[in-house]
Design a protein around this nucleic acid. Structure first.
Lengths: 337, 337
DNA sequence: TTGTATGCGTTATCAC
DNA sequence: GTGATAACGCATACAA
């Protein structure tokens, strides 16, 4: 029966019009809140809508209005709190702007280009994390890259990196450290390269020559490996500036286990201020980024671009904040961590 | 010009057909990989597609084929690794099934019902986390609830809770603890209620009467508050079974700060095995859930349901694993944490 | 092998 | 105030 079909397949504007005894145009009008519909008719339509539990088809609507009310977000992965927070900021702001969000995790895909092309098909604009920027095709849709670099017609937003890293490095110098190493893969992410630049800047300011970065990815096991190289005498240092907290934490744990005192024998600092950094002893000195705001800003910019704004050539950078705890050599404060 | 318009507004199947000198039907055919198209024609079409950088409109396609190739996921929030992992599992499996995913974070929305109704409009099926199950409307689309209870026509999947909690509680008894309290809001989540049931079961097995749960939400500050009530003598205990790790960690930190020895004066166990639980001292005894698999299973079930399978009445539950460290009273092992 | 024509469910522009 | 009806961009049954 028709009822059964409607229930299974979903009511359409036609079934509502039928039920209410009006035309589909009228149904559409009351649903759009058009004021030029009589009280009585409005009532009839609304009743029919309720009775049939009608929901306009998103696809049909998108086709008619020529936009999707949806933004896409491309992240490499979702391990650690960083990307999750970015996502929260993005989704929350998007929702405030009445936009839905489609998410794609690039790392798990074999063909990332295809993935973002597919995405571009169902959204009005795309925000991608810096490391995925290579996969932006010329979809013609607005694009903003997060924590990466701007390109022709593509806006970039990011959190401050070099100054924070310079401050952190300088802080280590002030603690009397003389043999600092930067740990992280500066080729993998624009973000990391900038942090290394800050590391270099602090050295140059003192007329020192910075050592090359110790390559390491972001996972804990990569940090463990670095610590073991250190333990094995593969290289030396009295302070480590790590690319992020996971790395720093893993290095610190393995080093401590290996009999190296932190910060006594080795000062360690990280980046991101994850939860563990507050709980671990010694507390990890690190840098806090306004990650959610970054996500929100991405959604905001997308909104502007979709609304017709011209992409700005300069990238916006959000301020960042050094968080001093005791892994750098400062006296522990405890309590709040 | 036409070129400019195409670039801005996106090429359509018509522009491609024009450029290739064929009909739109043929264009559609080669794009669908229909084998009944001549080599030569295929080439022409592909060239045109490349030249115009054509991408089929998702909305138009969805409207025509009557499905979206997209699944929706509604989560309450994204704090902590739990939801993030769930999301990873879901998105990854969905991608393997060639489905996109739309995400909605319920906590940040004023009108959640509206949010999932809107979502239902653009997806083929929805997976929602247990606590959001109340917001499923009669969209008619397949629905599966994660970590919640099945209802008429709605499948449920979850990780094992009561047996794990019973084991954990029994373990505490074996350590000689006699005054155990369960910490968490058993009204807020089906998951938590089940864990409390396990807590109760362990008591009953020994002919003991379990105390009522100590109400507390999931955030760290809630754990801090519980610890302070304990410190203030508001209630007593020699062992705490906490609803999740964040809670346990916060309680432990505040208690330690307040001079209570863990596990000496107070044994503490959590749930989830977050990263911090491995790094903190004493290491937190907890329970590990197959969270990613849970997410993947949700996508799988959705796929079956969308494909026409009948929703199964029994809920599937994934096995869970107790992770013993030292916050329960066991001797520390260190190294791996 | 390829083209024509129709339907998918809305929105929006016309008339009435 | 309300009702036809033309897009919107694609897939597909039916012809040729």
């Amino acid at each position: 029966m028709a009822v059964t079909d409607d229930a299974r397949r979903g009511a359409t504007i036609y079934s509502v019009a039928d039920q209410a005894g009006v035309s589909i145009a009228t149904v559409s009008r009351v649903l759009q809140g058009s004021s030029l519909v009589s009280e009585r008719t409005t009532r009839k339509v609304l009743d029919a809508v309720a009775a049939l539990d009608y929901l306009p088809s998103g696809a049909a609507r998108s086709l008619a209005v020529r936009h999707h009310d949806t933004y896409g977000l491309v992240l490499p992965e979702l391990s650690g709190p960083y990307y999750a927070e970015l996502l929260v900021g993005f989704e929350t702001r998007a929702a405030e702007l009445d936009q839905s969000v489609m998410l794609v995790l690039a790392d798990t895909k074999e063909d990332r280009d295809l993935a973002v092309r597919t995405l571009a098909t169902r959204v009005d604009g795309i925000a991608l994390f810096g490391s995925e920027a290579a996969h932006v095709g010329a979809s013609g849709k607005p694009v903003v890259v997060i924590a990466g670099h701007a390109r022709a017609g593509i806006e970039a937003i990011a959190a401050e990196n070099v100054e924070g890293a310079r401050l952190l490095t300088e802080h280590l110098f002030e603690h009397g450290r003389t043999n600092l190493r930067f740990v992280g893969d500066t080729d993998a992410a624009a973000d990391l390269l900038e942090r290394y630049e800050g590391f270099v800047a602090a050295h140059e300011q003192r007329g020192l020559t910075p050592a090359d970065p110790v390559r390491a990815e972001f996972r804990e096991r990569d940090g463990t490996a670095v610590a073991e190289r250190l333990l094995a005498g593969d290289f030396t240092a009295d302070a480590l500036v790590c690319g992020n907290d996971e790395l720093a934490l893993a290095v610190m744990a393995r080093l401590t286990d290996g009999g190296v005192a932190v910060p006594g024998d080795m000062a360690i600092v990280g980046w991101d201020d994850v939860m563990t950094s507050r709980y671990v002893r010694p507390g990890l000195t690190t840098v806090r980024q306004p990650v959610q705001e970054l996500g929100a800003l991405a959604a905001d910019r997308l909104h502007d671009l979709v609304s017709g704004a011209a992409p700005s050539a300069e990238r916006r950078v959000l301020a960042t904040q050094v968080v001093i705890r005791s892994s750098c050599g400062c006296p522990p404060v405890h309590a709040a961590g």
